[in-house]
Simulated assay, not measured.
Amino acid sequence: MPTPSGPANGPELETVHLLRAASVELALHSARFAQLNGLHPTDVRALIALMDARRAGEETTAGRLGAALGLNSAGTTALVDRLERAGLVRRVRGEGDRRRVVIEAEERAVALGWDYFGPLIERSAELLRGYDEGQRAAIQGFLAGVRDAAAAERE
């Protein structure tokens, strides 16, 4: 089997392979959470997107959520309806514009996620505490760059 040539064949490849392996493990962890809680993997991605928006102080409309997940309008409505029936999200009026309907994660969803993902989050944070500020900045820069590169491939 031919091997790639160019920069991808250098020492950086080991880090790229480790990132890929970590991504696979995180996806499997997320899939186990979905299975244990009777959720679809897209439901989990939606809850993560809603919690990320909440942490950033942003409101999420159904349209914005659908765009983030790559869903059409009908798929987004079905997703939100399903999560609402499960008691994991709610539709509320926007704070800045009361005409807008925004989707918010219920506290139950936050608690459910923290119970399952909390130990992994804590362990990851503990690992990062072992690095100095410059190293953490480099790690964040690398991960943000990979995220941006993957998002660009999606478009």
Rank of each mutant, 00 (worst) to 15 (best):
G130M: 00
E133C: 03
G118T: 13
E133A: 13
I48V: 14
V44F: 13
V110P: 06
G87E: 09
G130L: 00
R147Y: 07
E122F: 09
R54L: 07
A150V: 14
A8F: 08
L18P: 04
L39I: 00
V110T: 04
A56L: 05
R85V: 03
G63C: 08
H29F: 04
A86E: 15
V24M: 10
H17C: 12
L28C: 08
R82F: 00
L143S: 11
Q35V: 11
P2D: 03
T76Q: 06
E59A: 00
Q35I: 07
I121P: 03
G96H: 08
R108H: 04
A62V: 04
R54E: 15
E107A: 14
A144L: 13
G118C: 10
E59R: 09
D52L: 15
A46T: 04
Q35R: 15
E25R: 13
L18K: 11
A68V: 11
D43G: 13
E12Y: 02
D115K: 06
V89E: 02
H17K: 14
E59D: 02
R32G: 06
L69C: 13
N37H: 15
F142S: 15
P41H: 12
F117C: 05
P2N: 01
D115M: 08
L13A: 14
F33H: 15
I103D: 01
L128C: 01
D132P: 05
A86Q: 15
A86P: 14
R108E: 02
P119L: 05
A138H: 04
R108C: 01
A150M: 07
L19I: 15
G87A: 02
D97V: 05
A67K: 04
G96E: 03
E59L: 02
R54I: 00
R20A: 14
L39N: 03
G57M: 12
D115T: 12
P11L: 12
A144K: 11
A151L: 09
E14N: 01
E122V: 10
V92C: 05
E58I: 09
P11W: 12
P2V: 08
P119Q: 00
L65Y: 01
R98P: 09
